[in-house]
């Protein structure tokens, strides 16, 4: 179960993901991100993401490579402690900037 919204905040494209990112829902995010412009500044707002597995991490990694390959920037924000733990343990925290909230991310990234 997943719900994805795209919001444009100035020069930053925010993709808000709500629900669970597992092997059954991750392809939907992958498809959504593949259809988005990859250049520019992308923020994945995970404030309402309650769960992520390695399948979800793979999609985040793939999107990060795509955006950086096009010269853009990708960051995430709003991780609940359990999702943050998965980012830490996977080593993703050292690869992808993590902001506490959308407001904090937009203030930093603008």
């Amino acid at each position: 179960m997943i719900h994805i919204d795209r919001i444009v905040a100035g020069t930053i494209v925010v993709t808000a993901v709500k629900g669970r990112l597992d092997s059954s829902s991750s392809p939907k995010l992958e498809e959504f991100l593949a259809g988005a412009p990859s250049e520019g500044t992308i923020l994945l707002d995970f404030a309402e993401l309650t769960y992520i597995s390695s399948a979800g991490l793979r999609v985040v990694l793939k999107a990060t490579k795509l955006v950086r390959g096009a010269g853009g920037t990708l960051a995430v924000c709003g991780l609940i402690p359990q999702v943050h733990e998965v980012f830490d343990v996977s080593g993703f925290s050292s690869l992808i900037p993590i902001h506490p909230s959308r407001e904090a991310a937009l203030a930093t990234m603008t």
Partner: peptide, 10 residues
């Protein structure tokens, strides 16, 4: 970065 085996590592 390759992420094979990531699930088991987690």
């Amino acid at each position: 970065r390759r992420v094979g085996g990531l699930g088991v590592h987690l």
